[in-house]
Design a protein around this nucleic acid. Structure first.
Lengths: 204, 204
DNA sequence: GCCTGAGTTGAATGGCTGTTCAGTCACCGC
DNA sequence: GCGGTGACTGAACAGCCATTCAACTCAGGC
């Protein structure tokens, strides 16, 4: 039954399936309420096989978080390959961060971030991962701005500082949107984030 | 033994003790790893008594989150009673949000917020609580700025928008600081937050 | 044709922990 | 003094789940 699907090279697929399933489940129910049996059920196997691949439950869950976030950034990098104006790129970044709909891969992306922050607050190794992910995000912002500066699209600015500040602002806004704040709706957040960026970069 | 302490009116004290203990434990180990037995041990009683006061574990933990955050805001309001310049008040707000040391009541305050966000993401009633807390925070910011406007300390500004934006920025920065980002240190975050506020309010 | 090793499973095992219960204790109004 | 009530407890109970284990299947190499 299970073996019929695609014959060979299955083991890598299995791991990935499990990681993806785990990430989905974490986003849906939270880390604490995600059981090995759930993951197994979602990929259509037995709990024992999950343990066979990831010796321990914690191992699986942590790796699932990593896997999912890393995938997110890969998607972002891809999106930024295509030619676009600074303004368009900024809008894309805002959208990816804040919009509930347009998030790649896993639904309920922000549920994962919240869980990641919780874990990172207590586990140094997770914290290290998170720092690296965030640095990656700021690097993306820097690259976008720098490209525009080199093209003469905008005047030179303190790119590091802009990236740091804007990333923080985006995080804060996204939290509100993800938690369905009544004042900070998706549109408001988008507008605030873009206005800030435009002013800071001297656009318009 | 237990009854010798202060004779009457104990039951309310008990509840508070338990809520405080629970909040501490959540901050230390996280919601998921906080057991009824731990809370009982910390206040020096039996698990059964904890259940006696809070019928269910979830009830206790959620209430503990509420209790602790509400206490935080009470402390903030108190601090703002004393006379001070706008600049000083802003610095106080930044400090309360970002500084690891100066947080009232419970240590590891941000651990609580992360857990609260996680819960709020899935449980609508917790989400409602959180929205209310955040609105309270923005109201504080608005009040501080409005007072300064009325005193002629600064020119009129869009207070609502400032509060919303600055609150988001503070959240984002605080997350980084709480998770010990290498770039966004406590000093950097403070400086970024204050610079933004000064510029936005036309100070200096 | 056999053997090895990886993939897979169903069925235990065993620990942890929320919750229940039956009962103790001490105070208080009468 | 007595009955009752509310605070409190220790000892079960019961369910849940991660993890283990012994076994089975099946390629692929030799």
């Amino acid at each position: 039954m299970a073996t019929t699907e695609a014959s060979q090279g299955q083991s890598d697929t299995r791991r990935d399936q499990m990681l993806t399933a785990a990430a989905e489940l974490i986003a849906e129910r939270g880390l604490a309420r995600t059981r090995i049996a759930d993951v197994a059920a979602r990929v259509g196997t037995s709990p024992a096989l999950v343990v066979y691949y990831f010796a321990t439950k914690d191992g699986l869950l942590i790796e699932a978080l990593r896997h999912s976030e890393a995938g997110f950034y890969r998607a972002v990098e891809d999106l930024l390959q295509r030619p676009a104006t600074l303004e368009e790129r900024l809008a894309t970044l805002v959208d990816l961060t804040i919009s509930v709909g347009s998030q790649g891969e896993v639904q309920g992306h922000w549920g994962l971030w919240f869980e990641l922050w919780c874990e990172a607050f207590r586990h140094p190794e997770v914290a290290r991962d998170r720092r690296q992910l965030d640095e990656q995000w700021r690097a993306i912002i820097r690259r976008v701005v720098l490209a525009a500066v080199e093209d003469g699209e905008v005047a030179a600015v303190d790119v590091d500082r802009f990236a740091l500040t804007w990333a923080a602002l985006l995080d804060g806004l996204a939290v509100q949107v993800a938690l369905e704040d009544e004042v900070v709706t998706e549109q408001v957040a988008q507008e605030v984030a873009l206005t800030f960026a435009r002013r800071e970069l001297g656009l318009r």
